[in-house]
Design a protein around this nucleic acid. Structure first.
Lengths: 197, 197
DNA sequence: GTCTATACCCCGATAGAC
DNA sequence: GTCTATCGGGGTATAGAC
């Protein structure tokens, strides 16, 4: 076909993006080389630069990939009519990913933590934006529930997720995810039952 | 004096350790070079290797420094007779450090997140142990208060700290620290007043 | 104990053949 | 569009003079 070349190109770019998201999450930005990503994507090393001019562009592509994954997840959750159910399903999804979290932490969170130490490049703000997307979605759920201070509640829920991911990874203990996940679920229930704090 | 040389040596080692703790926190492990630490400690680059054989030994020294800082802080807090007061003072200390947290995150937490992605070397476990020290101290306070599931409560408090530090840094917003700090304080109060969850 | 010079390796990025 | 060879820079670690 006329555009078979185009689609192969798009395919390689997609493979590189997916590999970047995966490898950067597992190894961190600084310890990951272009060669690592190329190997994971099964693309010759030198060819990477045809698709991404710099390593930072690969990092940005990985961030966009994480944002896309997040959009996909929240899109599915949005099918549920009840916002409280959506939030509890989100927590359940986090706990389900506990084996990944225990080994490498939250993909977006650890990436943000690493990039935030940079002053230049503006990639740090990019990472903050992805977390902002999650915060925004969570806040909308709390608002739909008619709860006061929806963005404060969103902050608490997402901070809870980031905190439990970091501790689970630092202690190498998946139970941290299940225990804190259960607590967050109980907390969500208590909120809509008019419980304090 | 006979041991003036010795004390100068000890001084240099101490300066290098302090510089390592500071610079590794601000730049992260991988982006920090031996030269960076040497410059911060005002020690000639090549001389570093007389005190620390490898870069990893400097990282380990930094972790020990963070553990010492933690011991100093909890030591001061232990003077208060009331465990609840101690915990609230701990939260207050975290919030006081918000400007550092907003820029570079929690020193131990971000270090742990970075080291946890390594499989080799065992430095990852070392970072987990430092966080374990904090968890242990917090748990003891809850136990003194006679609350059920003291180590679950400790997990929640420390996860809250790690989560709010990460979000504050990712969003570049110190208010995250004050808002979540206030919430944790309210939560602590509600616990000893027999509140649920 | 102190410090300089440098060996050695690895990585990001480019040049240029195909 | 694809791939190899390589340049240039920078980082860890060491050798060895002082």
């Amino acid at each position: 076909m006329a555009n078979s070349t185009v689609s192969r190109s798009a395919d390689k770019r997609r493979r590189l993006t997916a590999a970047a998201a995966d490898v950067l999450h597992r190894q961190g930005v600084e310890r990951t080389t272009i060669a690592d990503i190329a190997a994971a994507a099964d693309v010759p090393v030198g060819n990477v630069y045809y698709y991404f001019k710099t390593k930072d562009e690969l990092v940005q592509a990985a961030l966009a990939e994480h944002a896309a994954h997040l959009a996909e997840l929240t899109g599915e959750l949005d099918r549920h009519p009840d916002p409280l159910h959506r939030l509890k399903a989100l927590v359940a999804a986090w706990v389900e990913q506990r084996d990944v979290a225990v080994r490498f932490g939250c993909p977006t969170g650890t990436l943000a933590a690493e990039l935030d130490k940079r002053a230049e490049g503006g990639l740090d703000e990019e990472a903050g934006k992805v977390i902002g997307l999650l915060l925004g979605w969570v806040e909308r759920q709390f608002r739909e529930l008619g709860l006061p201070d929806p963005d404060g509640l969103a902050l608490t829920l997402v901070a809870g997720y980031q905190g439990m991911s970091l501790l689970a990874s630092a202690l190498r203990d998946p139970d941290v995810m299940t225990r804190e996940g259960a607590r967050l679920t109980r907390w969500l229930d208590s909120l809509s039952q008019g419980g304090a704090s």
